[in-house]
């Protein structure tokens, strides 16, 4: 009976694909449900070609499929299916790896002007929908001459580098803390610098200024200094009074992180979430508040790394195997 047991994976990002592959190798019949038209999650829409060639991703997805894993695209759990539907259709366990969702914005004036993107929107246009080949491909992306990327994580570095490759003259990382606190990996920062990305550190944007025609004219910022350590243990950035200045910018990309995707938890009241909306899952097993339902990756931990998500997928696969064997 072991070899016919069905397991459903929600989301084909790094957590889901890893979990699917491991379970398939253990002999389970695995179906992956993906809401986008293409597999890979953040590996497809987020990480640019020059860091993760799509050919490698396609190869990995194909090898997972060759283990017998079925992938359904355009399948939204929390939309076209509920979790309950999956159990009704005979799946014995479900792994949720729906990733990070709603992008955070700064909440400053002018943030909804037409030259302001979230990192997710910008990268999705370019990576998933191939806007760099517009108008051969239908999806456009508008890139100005001078770009400011807000935030200094790995995603910020990706946005800054993609901007240069799309023809921007200047691409800035604008970050409110200093060099030492940048969350991106040293290697990513190094690569961004090599490629000509400029850094405006200890700089906090306070307003996006309009060009009077719904576009962006400048980014108004204030200089910061580091004060006492905050809860995160990092020195808290404090504005220097009277140090406002305007950066000559026409495109802003906000890359300050994302909250969890709200869709599935909203449709599944029994699924316990944190006050931030992340699914509560045991860090060792991925076990959630619903029997037979496991979760891992950004949806459980908040925005983290691909590697951590893959680790969570692996641990959950083992836990699901143990759970099903006891059924």
């Amino acid at each position: 009976m072991h070899d016919v047991t069905k397991v459903a994976i929600v989301g084909s990002g790094p957590a889901g694909l890893t979990c699917a592959g491991d379970l398939a190798r253990m002999g389970y019949r695995v179906t992956v449900f993906e809401s986008l038209h293409s597999t890979g999650g953040v590996l497809r829409y987020g990480i640019p070609e020059f860091r993760l060639p799509k050919a490698i991703l396609d190869f990995e997805v194909e090898s997972i499929k060759s283990l017998g894993v079925e992938v359904k695209v355009n399948a939204l759990i929390g939309g076209s299916y509920t979790l309950e539907d999956l159990f009704k259709e005979g799946y014995k366990a479900v792994f949720i790896g729906t990733g990070a969702g709603l992008p955070y914005f700064m909440g400053v004036k002018g943030e909804n002007l037409n030259g302001v993107y979230s990192a997710n929107e910008f990268l999705t246009r370019v990576n998933l929908l191939k806007a760099y080949e517009f108008p051969e491909y239908d999806t456009p992306v508008k890139i100005g001459k001078k770009i400011a990327v807000i935030g200094a994580g790995n995603v910020s570095m990706d946005c800054a580098r993609v901007s240069l490759r799309l023809g921007a003259e200047e691409s800035w990382i604008v970050y409110r803390r200093s060099d030492a606190e940048m969350p991106a990996r040293a290697e990513e920062i190094e690569n961004a610098k090599e490629e000509g990305v400029k850094f405006s550190l200890l700089t906090l944007p306070v307003e996006v200024l309009s060009d009077g025609k719904s576009g962006v004219r400048a980014l108004r910022c204030i200089k910061m200094k580091l004060g006492e350590p905050d809860q995160s243990g990092r020195k808290r950035p404090v504005p220097i009074e009277g140090s406002e200045f305007d950066m000559d910018i026409d495109t802003v990309i906000v890359a300050i992180g994302q909250g969890p995707n709200p869709l599935l938890p909203r449709k599944t009241p029994d699924l316990k979430v944190t006050s931030h909306g992340n699914i509560v899952a045991d860090p060792q097993t991925g076990k959630t508040s619903i029997e037979g339902v496991y979760a891992g990756g950004d949806i459980a931990t908040g925005a983290a790394t691909v590697i951590e998500a893959m680790g969570a997928g692996k641990r959950a696969a083992r836990a699901i195997d143990q759970y099903i064997k006891k059924l």
Binding site: Y45, G101, L102, E121, T124, N261
Partner: peptide, 8 residues
């Protein structure tokens, strides 16, 4: 774009 709360 995605329609599922990802791109903003």
């Amino acid at each position: 774009l995605d329609g599922t709360g990802m791109c903003g």
